[in-house]
Design a protein around this nucleic acid. Structure first.
Lengths: 197, 197
DNA sequence: CCAATAGTGTCAGAGACTGACAGAATTGGC
DNA sequence: GCCAATTCTGTCAGTCTCTGACACTATTGG
């Protein structure tokens, strides 16, 4: 599935720089607002040129969103492991829960990023776009488990609704002052949809 | 709710120009691709300056999305008219159906716009942003009709899921060659969510 | 006909992003 | 350790989107 891991070290260095840029960018955005920080400022702070910034992130927004595909693959794989006879909605919930349970998630930084993300429309939009990619990974698997006509349309409805719930749960978690449990919020959102009669 | 309709004629002229720009823009985007058409080209074709283009549309993308708030208000108002004891999900479906039933919807042009829209990431993102605005209008009304804890979170889950269904239905409709009924696709998507147990 | 109001083009400028290119660093084999 | 291939990197030049300022024209309402 993943690349041949050509020579390891290079990839590692690249990821580290990428992470550093993201860190600096989120800090600056949080303090001054997304629109009031230029790419040049971020680059200077990190110690690289503006041109190099764009070699790591296609657009300014991506410095906050970062990781576009990797976690999507993770969620898809978790979903794929679920028993075939399990209701789809439960399987999706379990897959997202697995993501939230990842040990290397930095909650403090994650929360800060989510806060910045929620404060700027163009960032939110870009984030939703990322979820569109996730949806493309999940939809085929979900469609497989459905019966009857219009399988693709119905699968898309399920997947996108689940992503909406995921988004909302994380958004609410980021806004909450107290140390709420994102997984609990996620379950609440999922349960609400399941209760639609 | 609506503006005092200051002097009518001016508003009418403005809307007409706006519609004309949008028409030209969608045509050009459809033919050459969104990124390959400059604002200047659109403006020249319409017979105005590039500066004036931006007086009608804040950003290039909006020439395709057009109407950012108006229809959102329409949907909200339709939902508000629904009986208070009706299940929320049914009320939302009815509100979107009312939008699709609007007599002045130009299906041919609408389909073209949706096609362009689906082909360019930045356009998709902007479209999602529009839906974020719709969600802000609908969420308070939905929250009002819910009981129990976490009303806001649960309302957001419902509203965003419904918007996802709306998006998917229109997206599938735009892609379909045959003259499918968007309302039927919408009902299918909504039914799928309602069937989650 | 005359103000007040609204719309327009032109100009200047900031900022995001891209392609080209030359120089520096890193890698893998020898 | 050394050399060639590969992979960064910064610099430069340029395009495009979007904004503010200003002067000018058109429309409106009295």
């Amino acid at each position: 599935m993943s690349e041949p891991t050509k020579s390891g070290t290079r990839e590692i260095a690249r990821d580290a720089v990428r992470a550093r840029i993201s860190e600096v960018a989120v800090d600056l955005f949080d303090e001054h607002g997304f629109a009031n920080v230029t790419v040049e400022q971020i680059a200077t702070e990190v110690g690289i040129s503006a041109r190099s910034f764009h070699r790591y992130f296609a657009v300014k927004e991506d410095a906050v969103i970062a990781e576009p595909m990797g976690w999507g693959v993770f969620v898809r794989d978790r979903f794929a492991e679920r028993p075939a006879d399990e209701p789809v909605w439960e399987g999706l919930l379990a897959a997202y829960e697995a993501l939230l349970a990842q040990p290397d998630r930095d909650d403090v930084r994650g929360k800060r990023a989510m806060r910045v993300l929620g404060s700027t429309p163009s960032l939110r939009a870009r984030n939703l776009e990322k979820h569109l990619l996730w949806a493309q990974l999940l939809t085929p698997l979900v469609a497989e488990r459905l019966r009857g006509p219009q399988r693709l349309l119905r699968a898309e409805a399920l997947v996108h609704s689940s992503l909406a719930c995921f988004d909302i749960a994380l958004g609410n978690w980021a806004q909450s002052e107290a140390a709420a449990d994102p997984a609990a919020l996620l379950r609440t959102a999922f349960a609400e949809i399941a209760a639609v009669s």
